[in-house]
Design a protein around this nucleic acid. Structure first.
Lengths: 166, 166
DNA sequence: ACGTAATACATGATATGTCATACATTGATA
DNA sequence: TATCAATGTATGACATATCATGTATTACGT
């Protein structure tokens, strides 16, 4: 099995195991990794529309309605139809949602510690350039570029216009 | 967003986009990435039991019954209950399955070319060391170690006993 | 003012990953 | 020979990723 194939499978394995670890850590909160990401994005960008949320999540779908529905049902997110434009819904965290988001921050911090220990003596940053080059024009890469001020090779990510929140 | 968080999301984004690309390339074959992996594992290890297949796939589940059921339905895999031990089923590729597996090989080869171009001037092996260190004792890492002769840091992967195929 | 195109979101359908539980078969023991 | 533990596989239930399609609302042109 050659190097490229090894890379493909290793990426899948690492991502899969990391996600499993993250889901395990989130279980006491009764949250999944995808739900946690939504809480964190709302924490940083609220109030925002469903479509904008979809543009910021590392996954591509027109509008993450069902994902958000679950969080609304759990009492973590509030959804209000925009008065200004009835097509939009405005999403914000409830008080409970803010508390849960803070716990997610702590769980993520522990994972980040482990990652930093793993890469402590590895010269990994040139490879992040390679990753960025692979995804830069694809939906997930665009979502990540929007969320961060990371150096994006070859061009700056266009900033999205202001939220339609009422 | 700090380095560790960037790594987490980049891993997810790269894996997700790569999987989407792979699924797109497989669509004319009416296959998904998971099904393609099964075909390739059977191509290399057949005849094998369901549990053994599960141990070789980069994902952990007791037995990938439903995944295999779909491939049997499509006429790509043959499943026979073992005469020697009625608990076991023996899996092999049909003629059509072998043909499809060969096409998957070609699709994978194209992806591997792109990966090699991406990493042409990057020193990626320190990153692979980090990846191996992260997953080596986890189910996906064990599956990969079983499938390959890759250098696994700190110890050799134990080889699984011979298949129960009749 | 009205009709149509565009936009935002919701839902249907399918695949699959994950955890838990159930069923069938075999091996070990008394 | 009968019983129980162990093993391999199947299935239930849920979440979610993905693609496609449908619904509601707004913007635009006449």
């Amino acid at each position: 099995m050659q190097l490229a194939e090894q890379i493909r499978y290793l990426m899948l394995a690492v991502q899969r195991e990391g996600n499993r670890y993250f889901n395990d850590a989130l279980r006491p909160l009764d949250l999944t990794a995808a739900q946690a990401e939504v809480l964190r994005v709302l924490q940083e960008y609220q109030p925002i529309s469903l479509g904008e949320l979809g543009n910021l999540l590392v996954c591509e779908h027109g509008s993450p309605s069902r994902l958000v529905n679950g969080l609304v049902t759990m009492g973590l997110v509030e959804r209000v139809t925009s008065k200004r434009d009835g097509r939009y819904v405005t999403l914000t965290l409830t008080e409970l949602g803010k508390e849960r988001a803070e716990v997610v921050v702590q769980i993520e911090a522990k994972m980040d510690e482990q990652i930093m220990e793993l890469i402590e003596h590895a010269s990994i940053e040139p490879l992040l350039e390679v990753f960025w080059r692979y995804i830069e024009d694809r939906p997930s890469g665009l979502a990540l570029a929007r969320r961060t001020k990371w150096h994006v090779p070859h061009r700056d990510a266009a900033h999205k216009e202001a939220s339609h929140a009422d």
